[in-house]
Design a protein around this nucleic acid. Structure first.
Lengths: 98, 98
DNA sequence: ACGTTAGGCAAGTAGAAACTTGCCTGTCAA
DNA sequence: TTGACAGGCAAGTTTCTACTTGCCTAACGT
């Protein structure tokens, strides 16, 4: 569960996609592809971006809604909020396996 | 720079090591190895743990001090504090490449 | 109806991780 | 000063991950 979040954040391209959605949420796959190509120097296939979005969605960082043939991607920052607390407030995260 | 931080957090074993140091900071490599073996089910070679610690240190999450033949590892949570802000306060992180 | 546009589904490949094994260096205690 | 202890370095292996290529489905416009 937390694993997918950290794995999703581990890739620089995925973090750039999050940046893109932070600036303009609700973009389609093709829009994101176009913006990554122009604004950043990421020449990547549509498939690559699609797979990245799938990883981000599995981590809960991106939510999608379909409308006709369009699929819009929205940023969800909620999973990011409590990352630090795991180690800054260690009492909350002790493993209780008794 | 930020890349090393997210890469460091991507691995579950490394996050467990951070948990361990959050509970008891200042442990040596052998102490961490022993505790990972007993408290968690991670049967790993000393080398593996050592390499994980190197990654965590490169990310700034662990700081070390040598005393004689002992090397103590301390947790540093500072790099964790502002992770979420990159996307929750997007204005602060726009790429300014003129 | 037909071409175009938006997106999905494998299967394959190249490179990067994680982990191991073996040996080597430095520190301390007896 | 010799042996045990704490740790480091350098391969090598295997597993995972990012990316590509090729084809396929669904929705829309004309």
């Amino acid at each position: 569960m937390a694993d997918e979040l950290f794995k999703a954040l581990a890739d620089a391209t995925r973090r750039t996609i999050l940046d893109e959605l932070a600036q303009r949420s609700g973009q389609t796959l093709f829009e994101i592809c176009a913006r990554l190509s122009t604004r950043h120097d990421l020449g990547m296939s549509r498939q690559a971006v699609s797979q990245h979005l799938a990883v981000l969605e599995a981590a809960g960082l991106v939510e999608t809604r379909r409308e006709g043939r369009y699929k819009f991607h929205d940023l969800n920052t909620a999973p990011l909020e409590h990352i630090a607390e795991r180690w800054t407030r260690p009492d909350d995260h002790q493993e209780r396996r008794s």
